[in-house]
Amino acid sequence: MSIGNSPESPEDDRNFPADDRDSIGRALQQARIAAGLTVDEVSASTRVRIPIVHAIEEDDFTRCGGDVYARGHIRTLARAVGLDPSALIEQYDADHGGRPSPTPAAPLFEAERIRPEPRRPNWTAAMVAAIVAVVGFVGFTMFNGNDTANTGGAVAEGPAPDKKTTAPTTKPTKTPKPVPTGSAIAAVPKDKVTVKLTAVGDKSWISAKASDGKLLFDGLLLKGESKTFQDDERVDLILGNAGPIELFVNGKKIEEKFESGAVERLSYTKGAPESG
């Protein structure tokens, strides 16, 4: 004879609330401890700052900067400690009013149409302008020379020049070299790596480091703002909300589409704009 309900009885499942489970922070903390990892080690592998890791393990998501960033940090930390991030994301959405609505596509496309494309050097126009300037200068010089000769013949009076006198030799006019205009100068130096980020449609937390580990920037990039970073060898990036980021590397646009709310880690060097 059994006393009370068996632990495996269906009635026992009905008596416990559906959310009788560890909180998100405790689940991440227990998984980290079980994996033998410290907070410093998790922070180093995920690039999530130590104070934010501590806050998330205490179920304090206010330091994440919003639901989009909180979901991205939860996903990153869960993968680092060996947990399935989808279950924790569902738990977070249930505790915070559901999954945030996706950004409408129309405003993003509208922003793409309004934003001017970067102008590239127009060598053809520069050469045409230089040729026109040279031809005009030569024509003006020849016209003034002929006009001066005709005027001198009509006004000056005096003895006819000696036939033995050698006529003065006219020196050939030097063609001026075309001066390169501002549009013909390359926008980025070839001996450095140049990375430009623009937040289109939404804000995004970003972190940028130089090849020597120096922190170039760490903070929020608001909608419509841009940041440009340069280094002699490499620029390392962390995008907290990669979806709305438009990226140019060494003057070339990165066509790869990132997921909204996803955390991306990228590295770029001199040469082809390929992520490391």
Rank of each mutant, 00 (worst) to 15 (best):
D191L: 01
E112Q: 12
R79M: 08
T62V: 09
A80F: 02
A111V: 01
V135E: 10
T103S: 07
A133Y: 06
F140M: 15
R71I: 13
A156D: 08
F140R: 13
R71A: 14
G145K: 04
S86Y: 06
D67K: 12
H73R: 15
R115Y: 04
G201N: 10
S86V: 09
F109G: 03
I114P: 00
D191H: 10
F137R: 12
G145A: 14
H73G: 00
F140T: 14
G201W: 04
K196T: 15
A167E: 11
M127S: 09
N122L: 04
V68S: 05
V155E: 13
V132M: 01
L83A: 02
Y69P: 01
L88P: 09
T124R: 13
R71L: 13
E90C: 03
A167K: 10
P107W: 08
P102R: 07
G97N: 02
P176Q: 05
L88N: 08
W123N: 05
R71K: 08
T62K: 06
K163C: 01
A126H: 15
I114D: 10
E112M: 09
K174S: 05
N144I: 04
D60F: 02
A187G: 13
G158H: 02
I74C: 04
G65V: 04
E117M: 06
G66N: 06
T181I: 02
P189K: 05
M127Y: 09
I89Q: 12
V200W: 01
R120K: 11
D67W: 00
W123I: 14
T173L: 14
D191V: 02
K163A: 14
I131V: 15
A156I: 14
R99T: 10
G201Y: 05
E112Y: 05
